[in-house]
Every structure is written in structure tokens, then in C-alpha cells.
Write a protein that binds this DNA or RNA. Structure first.
Lengths: 235, 235
DNA sequence: TAGTGGTCTAGACCACGGT
DNA sequence: CCGTGGTCTAGACCACTAG
């Protein structure tokens, strides 16, 4: 049910619920989710609200709408979806895998006279005893926004969960640039990259909160077997 | 003015007009476009239609909306925007530059028993006598959908313009995967890549028409100075 | 023909920014 | 305070799909 008194918009509430159900496998790949009309009735709301919610799912690449037929689930397995940037956990949920984080560096740095926490983590999945690292993730966060952030253990806790629960900050928007880079020796060892691979994908950018304040600078280097998948509409 | 009898939806008509004005520089970087209320009045339509149009501009990364203030133009210069994939011409428009295409290969190939046109082009810009190639673009198009396509000269004509005007096919949706690759000798020469660069960005995927039929397989290799910029909303 | 998503209308109230 | 964009309602007609 949707809660009209909640400060979260109805269509976002509905979006989250549908998303949850899709990621939990209640609607499987290729299956149709309830029609817009059914969702209207079930959640006692209007079509505009339902359509807003579904359009978020479409943006995520989680569903596809076809006129005259319905809205069906579209999970591309084994691929990394652009919308999961900044949300490694979702990626793991889809694949039903266990996440592993290893802190490579945690320190305080000074940039342009301001103090920042720097956190470098290797992140990956654990499958039957062996750990495969998929990315190296550098986060730069301003100390003044997050006093005491260094007391948390980010091998065990999710950075984003701490930001939300302890600092009441909600990442809202990202701006990232993708570019290729040459692999260096250290990265090759961490990501266990094969010798005949020489190029990696780098994503670099900023993350903004609900008030459009830059809360984090991010750099992520991906293992070569990771692809970024994107769907766009042309006009 | 919007034409209600046109088969193109009103919000798409409005979107195209606003987009045109932004790309033509009638609204410059940072300037506010008319408010939603003003657009309603000017085009004698409702707010829903106006908001649909603007949301397309937001998806393109061309404008940003701020509550309480307005909608302003957001052109990130010198960067390649993801929404321009498959539309090299727009990229040139924004930068006011002259496009150059050089056909490297044009042939007919057979894949899984079907015949396809293969077209490989180096594409770039011409500035004061020197030509800089920015990408190498491989297109694979089914012969049965486009009989006679090989009679056109794609150093002079735009592939997409021919598809639209001669075959009445409108590219509508893309699915692409981004990944890094190591540079090879030939590519290095064409794109004039500096010796200490070893990695390039590759985009590979398919383009679908208005009926969701795959009309083209594409592979694009970008020069190292090109970045893909992406903005996403988190939830 | 019934049900789907696509588009459009004509309102309403709200949170936020700037005056 | 007014104007902005954000959200929501309650309808309408259409094009398309499938039985």
C-alpha cells in the first residue's frame, strides 16, 4: 500500500515496491507485471502516478512497455547496468551473489584547502570459496559533511547505507564520464587481469544529494569482463 | 506552433522545437528557457504535454530543472553525450563544426546465412585545413531491409538521413554495451593516437526502428580524447 | 471486441526560491 | 508574496494486440 502521509512521493513508493518485486524474482524475466489499470486499482491511485512509477523502471532498464500487450520484465543477466552506478548492492541482488569489499586505503587528504576522507576499496563477489574482484572504487567525501565517517568499517558496512542512516543524506543524482585507461601493475594484480588484456574502463564523476550538493567524488575502475549496458531512446 | 493533425505527438513536436532552439544557440548555456506555464500559453497546450517535452530534454542532458527557479540549458562543451550515439550530426551542431566521413570499407558480408551491408567509416571534424578523426564506425545492415543501399556515397550522405528519407525507417531505440579495448596498429594510425596511449573505448550494440526491428548493428571505436558523459538519477 | 499502453486535457495543492 | 517546478487527480480518446 502507498502512504499519502509519507514524504516520499507516491510514484516513488510504487516504483520502489515494483522494483523490489522484480529484483526479488517475483516477476521473472519476460513475465508481464500488472497492467497500468490493475495497478491503479490495487494501489488506489491514478494512471499518471502509475505511469510515473513505471517510467522510472523503464529508465532503469528493468522493464519494457509494448502498446497493446503490456509491461514485461527485461533483465539482462551477467551485465552491469549503468543505473547501478553507485549501487553495487543492487547488482549483486540481481545475480543472487555475495558481495565482498576489501579496503585498500582509508585516509584523510586535503584538496584545495578542504579536508576529505579518501576510501579505496576493491569490490567483488565470493563464489564457492574463491573471491573475484570486479572493480576498484575510490571515494572522496568532504569531512565537514560527514564528521566521524572514519569510525565505520567499510569492509562490513555499506557506505551508502551509512550515509543514509547516520547522516540522513540521500544520493540523488550522478554525473559520470566514461573513458578507457591502460592497466597498471598493481591494478592487474588486484583484479587478476589476464596478461593479454591491456585496457580497462574507468568511470569518474560526482554524486549529488537531494539538495544538489556534491557529496562524493568517485572513481571506479572495472575489470575487463564487466560491460556497461545502456539503452537509449532516439528521436 | 503545434499541429494537432500531425501524427507526431504534440510533446515530441514541442521537444523538437525546443531542442532545435537550444542547439541553434537561441538559448545559451546557463540561460533559462521559458517556464512551463509560459510554454503552456505560448503553445496553447496543457502542462502535462509541456512536461513530457521537457523531460525528453532532461533525458538528453540538454537542460536541468530546479524547483522554484526554472529550467536552464546545460551544455557540457567538448564532451560527447551518450544521447548522441547514432547521431554524430548533433554532436557537430553543438560544437559548430564541420563533419568529415571517410569510407574505409564498403562490402557485402554473410552472417548466419543472411546478407548484410558492411560499412566502415572514419568520422571526425575539419578545422582550419586539418582533419581530426574522432571515431571509427562500423555499420552492419540487413540487405533485405535496405535493397540498393550500396548505391549511396556515405562520404557525402548521412546514413541515417538515407534510412529516413529513402527507406522510411526511423531509428528509435538503441542498446549498447561499452567496454575498453587495446589499440591496434591500424586504428592508431587512423585516429592518430599518441604513442603513450594504449586503451580505447568501444561501444557495440544494436539499433531498433519504430517497430522494434533491429535495423543496424553498430561498433564504434572512439579516440582517447573522447569521453562519454552520463547523468543518472538515483532512487 | 476487450484490454493494453500512448497521448492529452483541465484542473488542484504543494515545496521551494527569490522579492 | 508570487512564480517556479513537483506531484496528484479524474477523466477522455486513440492505436495497437490478441482472441
Amino acid at each position: 500500500m502507498l502512504d499519502k502521509n509519507n514524504f516520499v512521493p507516491l510514484y516513488v513508493q510504487l516504483y520502489r515496491q515494483l522494483r523490489e518485486e522484480i529484483l526479488n524474482g517475483e516477476y521473472k524475466q519476460g513475465e508481464f507485471i500488472p497492467s497500468e489499470t490493475e495497478l491503479m486499482k490495487t494501489f488506489a491511485t491514478t494512471r499518471g502516478t502509475v505511469r510515473n512509477a513505471i517510467s522510472l523502471l523503464v529508465n532503469d532498464g528493468l522493464v519494457q512497455q509494448v502498446r497493446g500487450k503490456g509491461t514485461f520484465v527485461l533483465l539482462r543477466p551477467l551485465k552491469y547496468n549503468i543505473t547501478n552506478f553507485g549501487g553495487f548492492t543492487d547488482y549483486l541482488n540481481i545475480r543472487n551473489e555475495v558481495g565482498v569489499s576489501k579496503v585498500l586505503d582509508q585516509s584523510i587528504v586535503s584538496l584545495e584547502g578542504k579536508s576529505f576522507y579518501k576510501l579505496i576499496r576493491a569490490r567483488g563477489v565470493k563464489k564457492g570459496g574463491t573471491t573475484t574482484y570486479l572493480m576498484i572504487d575510490t571515494s572522496i567525501l568532504p569531512v565537514d559533511l560527514f564528521p566521524g565517517l572514519d569510525q565505520y568499517d567499510f569492509e562490513k558496512e555499506s557506505l551508502y547505507q551509512v550515509l543514509r542512516e547516520k547522516y540522513l543524506i540521500y544520493p540523488k543524482r550522478t554525473e559520470i564520464a566514461l573513458s578507457p585507461i591502460s592497466i597498471d601493475k598493481q591494478t592487474r594484480e588486484i583484479l587478476q587481469v589476464h596478461e593479454n588484456e591491456h585496457a580497462l574502463l574507468k568511470a569518474e564523476g560526482s554524486i549529488f544529494d537531494q539538495n544538489n550538493i556534491e557529496i562524493e567524488k568517485v572513481k571506479i575502475i572495472y575489470a575487463p569482463n564487466i560491460e556497461f549496458n545502456i539503452m537509449t531512446e532516439l528521436n
